[in-house]
């Protein structure tokens, strides 16, 4: 492959967080949903073992469930999936999973309800520290006391195929839909063969990411009001991501 597009440093901060996340996160995922989904089928080991460690019959929430790839890992659980992208949710719903269109900043679930929460590769799409914290606050709010949340975010220090300028943390990361991929949005039908000029070229979309430094995720939580609500049960690095397991404290 020639000239694979590389992540681009965001020199200026995004001025209108909600508007920019809508354009550079929600809209992009809707447009790339079928191709993105086809590349998302392998479960990450830490996530898989977290799900397999849950008690049989547990009810959980997968906030930012995407195409639902984690929702069927452990068939003894009931997972309520939610996402901001309707394109991805249609795939999840089509697989027979619970799919709700919702915003992580204001979740529609009742408080203190679910036994566990997973948030896999979601929080890094929020463009201010306060919005990232508010998203985590909502995960904790819906968790029952004693329940656990697993949160994965992209690491700045990642050693994988993408290289990031270590002096910056906010990036536009390209997603390439290869040429001849018939449809990038909606359900593909024979009548919807794209015009030849589109099909002959790769299509590049850009998603906004805030890449986390080591311990930034834990610090965001412990230096906030959440510190009294949760305990950090585990944390680490896996597959280019930092992760943390939070346990919601039981009131004394």
């Amino acid at each position: 492959m020639v000239n694979k597009p590389q992540p681009r440093v965001l020199a200026e901060p995004l001025t209108d967080a909600a508007k920019n996340e809508s354009e550079f996160v929600h809209d992009v995922y809707n447009q790339i949903a079928p191709h993105f989904s086809n590349t998302r089928y392998k479960a990450w080991p830490v996530v898989e073992s977290f799900l397999n460690d849950r008690e049989a019959g547990s009810v959980g929430a997968d906030v930012g469930c995407g195409n639902g790839k984690y929702m069927g890992v452990n068939r003894k659980l009931m997972v309520l999936g939610s996402d901001r992208s309707i394109g991805l949710l249609e795939i999840t719903q089509g697989r027979g999973f619970e799919a709700t269109l919702a915003d992580n900043l204001a979740l529609p679930y009742r408080s203190d309800r679910v036994d566990f929460v997973i948030s896999i590769a979601v929080i890094h799409h929020f463009s201010t520290p306060e919005r990232r914290l508010q998203a985590i606050r909502e995960l904790v709010r819906i968790l029952r006391p004693g329940g656990q949340a697993l949160v994965f975010v992209w690491a700045l220090e990642q050693k994988g195929k993408r290289k990031f300028d270590q002096d910056h943390q906010d990036f536009m990361v390209p997603w390439v839909v290869p040429r001849n991929t018939a449809s990038v949005s909606g359900v593909q039908t024979e009548a919807e063969v794209p015009p030849p000029e589109e099909a002959e070229n790769d299509r590049v979309f850009h998603r906004y990411y805030h890449l986390f430094r080591e311990h930034e995720l834990e610090t965001l939580i412990t230096e906030s009001d959440l510190n009294s609500a949760v305990e950090i049960a585990d944390n680490g690095y896996d597959r280019d991501n930092w992760y943390v397991v939070l346990t919601k404290r039981i009131p004394e």
Binding site: S82, E90, L101, L105, P108
Partner: peptide, 18 residues
């Protein structure tokens, strides 16, 4: 009113409702 379409409830709010 939260619409449900093809089995998917839409629980999104307008900015001023959050």
């Amino acid at each position: 009113s939260y619409p449900i379409k093809d089995g998917i409830p839409n629980m999104l709010l307008a900015e001023h409702e959050i």
